[in-house]
């Protein structure tokens, strides 16, 4: 086979170009620390990486939602804890009022029961992040969520029974709220009274020094306390579920991030070795090209 002058040089140029393209590609990988630079590098790996990125983004969203749910739940629990304290305080005041103390003691009991009614109403209208904690999904603004007629003790609830749900996993939602009707009306199965109404009734009975009425309210307050505790139990189960989900998501996130790194991240050591190989090959190419000129009969004539 004859090797023409043009083909010898064309071959050399082609090989030099190829090596330079390879080196350029390896250099880009090294500087970006990524081995997947475009879908055409490895279409299947690219699709898998996209799926993993989507999964990681979704996990971040779930974790954000869980964090919101936990904060909401913890705040709800805090207010329910205060409500329990108020009920126990009201029970103590009721017991004190039954024993018929001095006028000063009576006046103090009236004042304290008055304060408890106000505090309980404040709890019922508690807000978190600009929203009523116990409004369900309704937004009664600018009205208060709970209003109470001071003369009759009648309570008006301006919320609904909506469940505030957030996404905590793929195709999984968690309810994070307790609505006002479920929290303040009791007993749970067939509600007949309301905690706010009972506390108002207690204040009225103490003010009227009606021991029989106080005794009735005392009995009802036992049920109220038990009801609040049961609502807290419901909340605790939900919070526990979200915490477990959070732990599972953390583990899943780590696993997906590792897999993504395997697919996408460049192995620097491997790339440097490959780069050195290509550099050596390019040097050999350049050297061979230089030798083409030397290997010419003209040099020997």
């Amino acid at each position: 086979m004859r090797i023409s002058f043009a083909i010898a040089h064309q071959g050399a140029i082609r090989e030099i170009n190829r090596k330079q393209v390879d080196i350029d590609r390896l250099t880009t990988m090294l500087s970006s620390e990524k081995k997947l630079l475009s879908p055409s590098d490895d279409p299947d790996a690219w699709a898998a990486a996209m799926d993993l990125k989507q999964g990681l983004r979704a996990i971040e969203t779930f974790e954000n939602n869980i964090q919101f749910g936990l904060s909401w739940g913890n705040m709800t629990d805090l207010y329910l804890d205060r409500l329990s304290d108020l009920i126990m305080e009201a029970t103590d005041i009721a017991n004190s009022a039954i024993t018929q103390g001095t006028d000063e003691e009576h006046a103090a009991n009236v004042t304290m029961s008055e304060q408890i009614v106000k505090d309980a109403l404040e709890i019922a209208n508690a807000e978190y992040d600009g929203r009523y904690l116990f409004s369900g999904l309704a937004d009664p603004s600018p009205s208060d969520l709970f209003t109470q007629d001071d003369a009759t003790g009648a309570v008006t609830y301006n919320g609904d029974q909506g469940e505030l749900k957030v996404r905590t996993g793929t195709n999984k939602t968690s309810i994070i709220n307790l609505n006002g009707e479920d929290v303040f009306n009791y007993p749970a199965d067939t509600p007949t009274t309301n905690i706010l109404v009972e506390l108002w009734s207690l204040r009225e009975a103490i003010e009227a020094e009606d021991t029989s009425a106080i005794q009735t309210v005392l009995t009802n307050l036992d049920g109220a306390l038990e009801h609040v505790q049961s609502q807290r139990s419901v909340l605790a189960v939900r919070l526990g579920d979200m915490k477990s989900q959070q732990e599972a998501l953390d583990a899943l996130s780590l696993s997906k991030a590792n897999r993504l790194s395997e697919l996408e991240a460049a192995d620097t050591a491997e790339l440097i070795i490959l780069l050195q190989q290509k550099q050596t090959a390019l040097e050999a190419c350049l050297s061979a090209t230089a030798m083409i000129d030397d290997l010419n009969l003209m040099d020997f004539l």
Partner: peptide, 24 residues
């Protein structure tokens, strides 16, 4: 293309060495 170009050049291409020998 590279292979066929080599073959085409083997027939039609100019080899400087060959031309030098012809020159001599």
């Amino acid at each position: 293309r590279s292979e066929l170009e080599s073959q085409q050049q083997s027939v039609s291409g100019v080899s400087l060495d060959e031309e030098m020998v012809d020159l001599l």
